[in-house]
C-alpha cells in the first residue's frame, strides 16, 4: 500500500473542478493515502452549512453531469473524511472574508488553517490544484 501524501488545493467554485477535487480526495483517501484538502476562494462557500447554491458548470461535462447520477462532490468529500481519514481544512483567510465561523461550516471540515501551516504540511506531498 502506498503511503505517499496527496495535498489538494481547491480554489474554484465550478462544478467540474469541485467534482474532480472531491474524486481525487476520496479515491486517494480510500486507497490508503494520506490526503489533505485545503478549501479557499470560491470553493469554500459551497461548504457552508445549509447553503444550497448549485455550483455553476464550466462547460459540456458539467452540464451533462448535472442530469446524471454522478456522486455529489460534497458527499465524496465527506466520504474522503469518513471512509479514508482525509483532512479537509477551510482556509482561515477565506473564512474571515466570508465572515463565517467554524460552526457555520460542514461538520467534517477540520479547524481553520492558514497557508503557513498548510504549506508546511504539504511540503513532502504531491500537490493537486483545482
Amino acid at each position: 500500500m502506498s503511503t505517499s501524501k496527496i495535498c489538494v488545493v481547491v480554489v474554484s467554485g465550478t462544478l467540474e473542478r469541485l467534482q474532480m477535487a472531491a474524486m481525487v480526495a476520496s479515491v486517494g483517501a480510500v486507497s490508503g493515502q494520506e490526503v489533505l484538502v485545503f478549501l479557499s476562494m470560491n470553493a469554500l462557500p459551497h461548504f457552508i452549512k445549509g447553503r444550497n447554491v448549485k455550483a455553476p458548470h464550466e462547460g459540456e461535462m458539467g452540464a451533462l453531469m448535472s442530469g446524471k447520477k454522478v456522486p455529489d462532490f460534497k458527499t465524496l468529500m465527506e466520504q474522503a473524511v469518513e471512509l479514508g481519514d482525509a483532512k479537509v481544512y477551510p482556509c482561515s483567510m477565506a473564512m474571515d472574508v466570508l465572515g463565517v465561523d467554524q460552526h457555520d461550516l460542514e461538520n467534517y471540515l477540520t479547524e481553520a488553517t492558514g497557508l503557513t501551516k498548510f504549506l508546511d504540511d504539504a511540503r513532502d506531498g504531491q500537490v493537486w490544484t483545482f
Binding site: 479515491v27 480510500v30 454522478v70 456522486p71 465524496l76 471512509l83
Partner: peptide, 18 residues
C-alpha cells in the same frame, strides 16, 4: 447500478466496512 465513478467504489467500501 446507475451511479458513475467513483460511486460504485464508495458503495463497495461502505459495504466492506460492514
Amino acid at each position: 447500478r446507475g451511479s458513475f465513478c467513483p460511486g460504485p467504489l464508495m458503495e463497495l467500501i461502505v459495504a466492506l466496512k460492514a
